[in-house]
């Protein structure tokens, strides 16, 4: 193959790609830039790429690390903010859901793929039918259920509907287990392993890739959850980052929102997923190949 020296079409394509990247990244830059701007400068210093007087005060005050007087002086409304706590709640929420759900769905997926028992295909079909039920439909009754159980404003109530299963994860992991070669498992049966032993010692270690994929996808979705935690986890103590951002905006005066504080809090809500992207970005990007189209 020969490489052409200059191809105007290709150059134009790269220009277009660059525009796409700038449009994707710039809003995040502007968010961080605003978070680093003193609230007092917001009217005068809002057109340059870098703040004139960069400061960390907005981060400190939304993390709850300053006194109320200091926070107020730096542009806060005086309402108590504790984004360190909300971030922790979100991490616990995501970790619980992703970890437990992935394990349980792997167990079920394995049973549906490999174990033999009467009614298997029927039970599987019923579970998969739940894919057709949109979240809003079960949301109202689940809200009442959680209320009746006395789980309002508890972590238990927040994770309950999704921690045990989602139909998609069961479906996805069953597909994977179906594709595993059977010989290794058969050898293990001959060695006297029961279904449980094979699952733990052979099937699970062989499916690290798909387990990580589904775990990561679940983590990302859980991180973005808003409506359900808003309904059942509004209390300060269990508030997730997303819910806290909504509350923060509401507390902020309509005429003059606390933009620097809001952008600092927004930046904090992006930071963990940004770290995820840095450390497992390759895996996430590749996982789209098989959760998406295949």
């Amino acid at each position: 193959m020969t490489r052409r020296t200059f191809n105007p079409g290709r150059a134009l394509a790269w220009v277009a790609m660059t525009v796409v990247i700038v449009v994707t990244v710039f809003p995040f830059w502007w968010m961080i830039r605003t978070a680093l701007t003193p609230a007092a400068d917001i009217y005068t210093d809002n057109a340059s790429l870098l703040p004139e007087h960069p400061t960390m005060i907005n981060f400190l005050r939304v993390l709850g690390l300053t006194s109320e007087a200091e926070a107020r002086a730096a542009g806060g409304s005086g309402a108590h903010l504790n984004f360190a706590g909300y971030l922790w709640n979100s991490i616990v929420y995501c970790g619980l859901i992703a970890g437990v759900q992935t394990l349980f769905c792997a167990m079920a997926g394995y049973a549906f793929a490999r174990l033999r028992f009467p009614g298997r295909d029927l039970v599987f079909a019923i579970v998969i039918a739940a894919l057709m039920v949109p979240p809003i439909f079960t949301l109202l009754p689940n809200f009442i259920l959680v209320k009746d159980l006395g789980w309002m404003n508890t972590m238990a109530g927040m994770v309950a509907p999704t921690i045990l299963m989602t139909p998609f994860a069961v479906f996805f992991l069953r597909q994977f287990f179906l594709s595993l070669p059977r010989d290794v498992e058969e050898a293990a049966i001959l060695d006297g392993n029961g279904p449980w032993g094979i699952f733990w010692r052979i099937a699970l270690p062989m499916s690290r890739g798909p387990l990580i994929t589904i775990g990561l996808t679940t983590t990302v979705w859980a991180w973005k959850d808003y409506l359900w935690p808003l309904l059942v986890g509004r209390d300060e103590e269990n508030r997730l980052v997303t819910v806290a951002l909504g509350v923060f905006l509401q507390q902020s005066p309509n005429t003059q929102p606390d933009w620097t504080g809001l952008m600092a809090a927004s930046t904090l809500s992006v930071l963990p997923v940004l770290l995820l992207l840095v450390f497992v970005g390759k895996r996430l990007v590749q996982s789209l190949n098989f959760t998406g189209s295949k």
């Binding site: 167990m107 049973a111 174990l115 579970v127 309950a160 999704t162 299963m165 139909p167 279904p195």
Partner: peptide
Amino acid sequence: AAWLFLLPVLVGFAVF
């Protein structure tokens, strides 16, 4: 074994 494997998912499915 199968029903034990399925227990958490079936409970989650039925209840939620």
